[in-house]
Design a protein around this nucleic acid. Structure first.
Lengths: 118, 118
DNA sequence: GAATTCGCTATCATTTCGATAGCAAGTGGG
DNA sequence: CCCACTTGCTATCGAAATGATAGCGAATTC
């Protein structure tokens, strides 16, 4: 059975009718999916470079994620390695603001944990 | 051992040093995490309402996700049920554009699969 | 005090992930 | 041709996460 890939219009986690946002969440809500997109935003990478950039993610999982992202037209593969498609880059541009946000979020958590009580 | 919750500054999937963006990806890259935030953006929900809104996610997983999101200051719980914190709403505002994007993405995939060859 | 609702926990099967080993195809010498 | 090297994987197997179902204890309402 060839891995089940979340697709809009087919039942996915969160939506039996395959609402696009839920298909996307199903796709991105898997280990390393967001990390792979993030890493590829810096330019094309070979399978092994990508594996190294993701701190040693196992080839099993990396390959599965790449298959899913290729099937979803977010990533493509050519002579220069793996890279984001136009669609993938558009998605990344929406994710990019999470970077700065995460830094602020980290500060918030640190404060909260530094000042245990009111 | 009480579930390991991804926290900026501690080793997480994608970053041994706990870079905030990778901690966030670790947190959001778990089943139902994005879906829960999405559902709660419509207002507070009880545990059971939330479970129903997520098409029957098992209480085991829902509770685990809620614990993680509470520990991350994204979700809180009070007399009116579970709801997004200010931090959580800020995060949602960044995720919201994914809704329209996913709809366009679904169209792209449909076209590609409707026109099999060049 | 019986019936509901709410927020879970317990249990167990299934699925996914993670780690390691290694292979087949392509490239480029020598 | 032969060898070394890189690339893109697949195979195997144990560990961890997820999914499905049952049900409990506390609080609220009648």
């Amino acid at each position: 059975m060839p891995d089940k890939i979340p697709t809009p219009g087919s039942p996915v986690r969160g939506s039996k009718t395959g609402k696009p946002i839920m298909a996307l969440f199903d796709l991105l809500g898997r280990s390393w999916a967001l990390g792979v997109i993030w890493q590829l935003s810096n330019g094309p990478k070979t399978f092994r470079d990508l594996q190294a950039a993701c701190e040693g993610v196992s080839p099993t999982v990396l390959n599965r994620r790449l298959k899913e992202l290729k099937a979803s037209a977010i990533v493509a593969h050519d002579g220069n390695g793996y890279h984001l498609t136009d669609t993938g880059m558009a998605l990344f541009s929406l994710l990019q603001p999470l970077g700065p946000w995460a830094i602020e979020w980290a500060k918030t958590l640190e404060e909260r944990d530094t000042l245990p009580d009111a």
